[in-house]
Amino acid sequence: MHILIAPNAFKNSLDAGQVALAIEKGLKRSKLDCTTQCFPIADGGDGTGTLIVESCNGKVVWKEVTDPLGQKIKSSFGLIDYGKTAVIEMADASGLRLLKKEELNPLKTSSYGTGELIKFALDEGASRIIIAMGGSATVDGGCGILSALGIRFLNNGGDVLQAVPESLVNMAKIDASDLDKRLSNCEIVILCDVDNKLLGPQGAATVFGPQKGASIKDVPFLANFLANFAKISTAQTGKNMADIKHGGAAGGATAGLNTWLNAKLVNGIEYFLKLTSFAEALQHADLVITGEGSIDRQTLQGKGPYGVALQAKQAGLKVIGVGGVIPSKPDEELDRFFDQLICINEPGTDLATAMANTRENLVKTGNKIGDMLA
């Protein structure tokens, strides 16, 4: 039996590659006579860019950029497809993991550094730029990125505003006359792992603001800023920025780049699997194991394990899903894609203990699956 192991990362615990290796280790300890292939996956979240560059045998380019609070840091992007395509991970320049918990403040953080990476990619001659936007520390609608690329945000008096929400809330006009001309010949593709639109109760400020450090008072402030940005953008471009599917991802940066740079917003896992030739790996598999930290109905909204399971089912293969959390009762919708869901934790395990023992529990689960199949 040949088993394809294609998990997503277990957030805040292990990256996708580590998860795959732990499951593989367990399978090899089991009674099952099998071969395995590790195929770690990502859906646009933190770590997606790294996996794409590794899978496509790309090279990494290091540059100095600005972090979310304006400090200079070393960051990187990848080049694949003989240098024609750049792969940028927003989290590498504008990510939550670059800041201490007490530094998180989406009124003051900017995505400017990600815009600098885009400029460096253009300097390298890239004609296509793929951006994974998961794990950002910003709710600036992508204004920081746009500012780095030459767009200016003005107040009523014509003064240029700093590209952070606490200043941008005074935006009255957007001047795109100095936008980097090279962008007109460059395709920008953004991998999205959520469907949320920019505004409303499921919008960027309300849903993702608190994750990035927004207080109860900050959320309506950020929502008002984004609403004003959308109103001005719609008036100047004719594009309804508030109505863009995936527009709420990365603090609204997806909506900003779609409106002002004509960036394509795509389903992250679908694009990732195509780019990394997942279908070829499926051809040799007899069974697929996938998973992530939590598997539930939200998984079916375009998350990594769903994308894997969908393609595996289309190929006529059985799928086992593993997670730190799974539904307590059978779920008809999930059962259409997963032949079996397995929780890697013992019942009643508290979160801290579960997180600390993720690797060990994945090895045990791999062993359990192997013995079950044997």
Rank of each mutant, 00 (worst) to 15 (best):
residue 72 K to L: 07
residue 10 F to L: 05
residue 195 D to V: 05
residue 369 I to S: 09
residue 117 L to F: 10
residue 311 Q to Y: 00
residue 112 Y to W: 10
residue 206 T to K: 02
residue 170 N to L: 10
residue 206 T to N: 03
residue 350 D to N: 09
residue 343 C to I: 02
residue 308 V to H: 00
residue 372 M to R: 12
residue 37 Q to N: 07
residue 338 F to Q: 03
residue 91 A to H: 04
residue 316 G to Q: 10
residue 24 E to M: 02
residue 78 G to V: 04
residue 65 V to G: 03
residue 16 A to S: 06
residue 249 A to T: 10
residue 262 N to F: 01
residue 257 L to K: 00
residue 27 L to C: 14
residue 182 R to I: 07
residue 240 N to H: 11
residue 161 L to G: 09
residue 139 V to D: 12
residue 167 S to G: 04
residue 4 L to K: 11
residue 143 C to A: 15
residue 3 I to K: 06
residue 222 L to N: 10
residue 359 R to G: 12
residue 156 N to E: 15
residue 219 V to M: 01
residue 44 G to F: 08
residue 223 A to D: 15
residue 22 A to F: 09
residue 134 G to C: 07
residue 79 L to S: 11
residue 142 G to M: 00
residue 365 T to G: 05
residue 236 Q to D: 12
residue 49 G to A: 15
residue 208 F to C: 05
residue 45 G to M: 06
residue 66 T to N: 02
residue 358 T to D: 09
residue 258 N to R: 09
residue 213 G to R: 03
residue 231 K to D: 09
residue 148 A to W: 07
residue 353 T to V: 11
residue 47 G to V: 03
residue 49 G to E: 10
residue 86 A to F: 04
residue 69 L to Y: 06
residue 74 K to Y: 12
residue 21 L to S: 10
residue 182 R to S: 10
residue 227 A to M: 02
residue 237 T to E: 05
residue 62 W to K: 14
residue 296 D to Q: 03
residue 31 K to I: 10
residue 132 A to P: 03
residue 285 A to Q: 08
residue 250 A to V: 09
residue 190 I to T: 05
residue 334 L to M: 06
residue 8 N to T: 07
residue 44 G to T: 11
residue 274 K to T: 13
residue 177 S to C: 05
residue 167 S to M: 13
residue 337 F to I: 06
residue 81 D to Y: 00
residue 315 A to Y: 11
residue 62 W to S: 15
residue 371 D to P: 02
